[in-house]
């Protein structure tokens, strides 16, 4: 049991340890330390132990560790393949994720620039965000208004994705790529399996997901500079931010470390 420092009993080792880190935390215990040679010496031992721990160096790994590791390392060909993907945009290094993000953002801008969403054939559009995120828009139909070109080019630029000038919103609507993109976005934003693979247990995967989300958010912000009032874009960014917050809260410090420090 911890001893009361007011008595003549000695301080517990735990109390001594605490006083080592926070000397002013307990004035009476500190006073006891000054008067009690034994406790003072014990604190000195504890201090030395702490210093010795901080000076611990490396530990020799097994002799054959490299031989165990090497067969699992990426080869030149594999890495070169990744490099080609990187040419799309450094922020979007994860293959389909980048392309999906770019395509989806183009899609979102198209929606936000005057699309009227239809559900069951009737006018809708009150909740374009839901439509984008759920992937319902493609199947329910979307007709585009004018004025999306500028924003689409902006997004295309932000995402390293070329938007064809002759590709009108109607063509976007019909494109299965965009349907797929929206469906995948739903998975991404709502934490579906395609992206959210063991996020809590795998800091590197968490870092990747955070990077993807940040890339999406940045691309959306870029597009919003040109069309700041665009509801679909704003909703989209909100959803991405929500997803980021959710991931952060679930991962705690691990996610932050992974996303901020793995650089």
């Amino acid at each position: 049991m911890e001893q009361d420092s007011r008595s003549s009993d000695h301080l517990s080792l735990e109390r001594i340890s605490a006083l080592l880190d926070e000397p002013g935390d307990d004035p009476r215990a500190t006073e006891h330390l000054k008067e009690c040679e034994r406790c003072e010496r014990e604190q000195e031992r504890m201090r030395r132990m702490r210093m010795a721990l901080s000076a611990l160096g490396g530990v020799t790994p097994p002799e054959d560790e490299w031989e165990q590791i090497e067969p699992h390392l990426p080869d030149r060909q594999e890495l070169e393949g990744r490099g080609e993907e990187d040419d799309v945009l450094p922020l979007f290094r994860s293959g389909w994720v980048g392309r999906v993000a770019a395509a989806t953002l183009v899609f979102a801008v198209g929606l936000g620039a005057g699309l009227q969403l239809r559900d069951d054939g009737s006018p809708s559009g009150e909740n374009p965000d839901r439509a984008v995120a759920s992937g319902e828009t493609g199947s329910s139909g979307a007709t585009a208004g004018v004025g999306a070109e500028t924003g689409r080019r902006g997004i295309g630029s932000a995402a390293g994705f070329t938007v064809a000038d002759d590709g009108g919103p109607a063509s976007l609507q019909r494109s299965s790529d965009y349907l797929s993109a929206a469906q995948r976005l739903e998975s991404m934003v709502s934490g579906g399996q395609e992206v959210d693979v063991e996020p809590i247990d795998d800091p590197v995967a968490a870092a990747e997901e955070m990077a993807r989300l940040e890339a999406l958010a940045e691309a959306a912000r870029e597009a919003l500079r040109e069309q700041p009032a665009d509801p679909a874009l704003n909703n989209f960014l909100f959803r991405v931010n929500e997803r980021q917050e959710s991931l952060r809260s679930r991962l705690g410090a691990a996610a932050r470390l992974a996303s901020m420090d793995y650089r």
């Binding site: 049991m1 911890e2 001893q3 000695h10 301080l11 517990s12 080792l13 735990e14 001594i16 034994r38 406790c39 014990e42 809590i200 247990d201 795998d202 800091p203 590197v204 691990a254 470390l257 992974a258 420090d261 793995y262």
Partner: peptide
């Protein structure tokens, strides 16, 4: 950092509770 985080991730998966033991005194 990767090493530390991967080790911590593994430890978290084990979901251990904090060890509760009696205090020691000199």
């Amino acid at each position: 950092r990767i090493a530390r985080n991967m080790a911590l991730s593994h430890l978290r998966r084990r979901k251990r509770r904090p060890d509760v033991e009696g205090e020691a005194s000199p």
